[in-house]
Design a protein around this nucleic acid. Structure first.
Lengths: 236, 236
DNA sequence: CAATCGAAAAGTGTCGACAGTCGACAATTT
DNA sequence: AAATTGTCGACTGTCGACACTTTTCGATTG
């Protein structure tokens, strides 16, 4: 007798490979500021600490290098990427460029479900502003913007957004918050959503430019007030 | 006794590490169509052929995966990325988005040197159209657009352009040419350059949209006429 | 006392090896 | 004959090892 000739709905077993796990562990440590920008990331040390060999650590390093989280100097290994102020300017400039486009596309492809999802996420952002949890707030802010890119329907654009976001999180994780005033984040998103609702391209682009320009100035100011971290301290 | 107390401007000797060399070799093989889309790239085979061990090959694979040239399925290794027609649409859509921005920025930062360099590159493109060398023509076309991104001054944008370009070259290398008419490529660049010269944002964006939209349609049409390469042939 | 030199420690680049996994094909059962 | 199971070869994921390079740190010297 056969056990089952048809699929019975078992959840697929995904064997999380080491590289992915290591990459995730390192990413968390970096965007949480646990490993500060400029810090050396020694393969041997990471391998020892995680109880794995160096090979998968090296591959995870390459992965994070391609995402802009690490830099590698041949013969000298990896270290957490440092961002000069003008590099942050480049990042935000590019981000505004693609999010403008994403928002216009999203408005064209807007469905009732999408509209509701956006509204929901913005509400969550408002709620998060009430409690004091900067890391969570950064996360929810990121999700709102990511949702717009998702709705745009351009998957390559979404991937790019993810890359830019993880890169930006190094510095945002470093300064620990987006603004001095936690309420302000959620509030500045409202005009953006309103602009998208209109469906008018020019208005949407203006909305993105206004909102992200504000965020840009906030981050740029905080970064420039930061103690210039040229540290080369090791990580255990 | 010290040889020199101050740097004298010698070109640094970069000991090309294996990973870079392997990555370059694989990239060439891919964008030249020597390893077709969908083909499996076995680590052991590549390692044997190049006379190296599998470790650097794996790292090079990760690198090319992040550039969108390879895809890796856990437990099944790497294979050359295949692009569905709608993924090519995504790529071109994104490319137009960032090149619009790059062109506007470039016009703002334009210097006599930059203007000359652009004109020169376009002349080279015209010359290349005369001789029959599709690969060279793709190369020079790419250089012209890259120059615009360089002049824009946004390095992150330039890096993104390089990524998109190498990804696009998989399919362009596959079809072997940009258009049926080799002369047309150079000609369609002229209005773009003229638009940039005006310095007017709207006109520049229109110029980019017109030029790249034309290229998009050309590539999209050729791709859709392509025999759907779902091959899984191995590479020696 | 500061600068320099050099040996030791730590770390990186690469390799060969082994175990586990995947895919294909033959043998077997229904 | 069709479907299932067992087997085999090839390949991937991971590991430990070795040679070479970089860094560290104490000893030496001016």
């Amino acid at each position: 007798m056969r056990l089952a000739s048809k699929p019975v709905g078992l959840p697929a077993i995904v064997s999380q490979d080491l590289v992915t796990q290591i990459a995730r562990a390192l990413t968390d440590a970096i965007i949480s500021g646990q490993i500060p920008p400029g810090a050396k990331v020694a393969e041997a040390a990471v391998a020892r600490e995680l109880g794995v060999s160096r090979a998968p650590v090296r591959e995870a390093g390459r992965l994070l290098e391609s995402q802009g989280l690490l830099v590698s100097i041949p013969g000298r290994g990896f270290s957490v990427r440092t961002h000069a102020p003008d590099e942050i300017d480049d990042l935000y400039d590019l981000r505004i460029c693609i999010e403008k486009h994403a928002a216009v596309l999203a408005a064209q492809r807007m469905t009732p479900e999408n509209r509701l999802a956006l509204r929901r996420q913005l509400d969550v952002l408002h709620e998060t502003a009430a409690i004091n949890d900067p890391a969570r707030q950064v996360e929810e802010d990121y999700r709102f913007h990511r949702l717009i890119c998702e709705i745009s329907g351009n998957r390559r654009l979404l991937k790019l957004f993810d890359d830019l976001a993880s890169e930006l999180r190094i510095v945002i994780g470093l300064i620990g918050r987006l603004y001095d005033d936690p309420q302000r984040i959620a509030q500045t998103h409202e005009p953006l959503l309103a602009a998208i609702e209109t469906g008018d391209a020019a208005q949407i682009q203006g909305g993105v430019e206004y909102h992200l320009g504000d965020a840009w100035r906030g981050v740029a100011q905080l970064v420039r007030n930061l103690p210039t971290n040229q540290t080369t301290e090791k990580v255990s």
